[in-house]
């Protein structure tokens, strides 16, 4: 698994965004993870506790917001969550869909203290 690489990336981004802003400490990180994006499990928290030590973000809390997949049917406009073995539109049977949500893999925001 590549959770270590992911965790290092999260730390790098958070610290970069806190720099030059008189931040004493990063207290919280808000992550958005889509259902169809990477698998990120509890081991991120495990790595986090180790690698954030000695940084601005030491001891910060990670918040994960998981986003379900929602497809928009391009044939009838219906928005739906695909079933596990059927991605076609349940309304019209169409297979022309656009992914509306579910592919996010972002650090959305951080909370900081002086």
């Amino acid at each position: 698994m590549h959770e270590l690489a992911v965790t290092e990336s999260i730390l790098e981004i958070a610290v970069r965004h806190a720099q030059g802003k008189n931040v004493g400490r990063i207290t919280d990180l808000y992550l958005v993870i889509g259902q169809w994006s990477s698998i990120v499990d509890d081991s991120v928290q495990f790595y986090w506790d180790i690698i954030s030590d000695g940084t601005l973000a030491k001891g910060a809390t990670l918040h994960f917001r998981r986003v379900l997949v929602v497809l928009t049917c391009q044939d009838c406009g219906n928005e739906y969550q695909p079933a596990s073995e059927e991605f076609a539109c349940p309304n019209c049977g169409g297979t022309h869909a656009r992914v509306k949500t579910g592919e996010e893999f972002q650090l959305e925001a951080i909370d900081v203290e002086d």
């Binding site: 690489a5 990336s9 999260i10 981004i13 990477s38 972002q106 650090l107 909370d111 900081v112 002086d114």
Partner: peptide, 16 residues
């Protein structure tokens, strides 16, 4: 004082 900083950056942006 506590404050929120918006980031909105892809997690693997360094690799990108």
């Amino acid at each position: 004082m506590s404050q929120r900083i918006p980031v909105v950056e892809k997690i693997l942006s360094a690799n990108d």
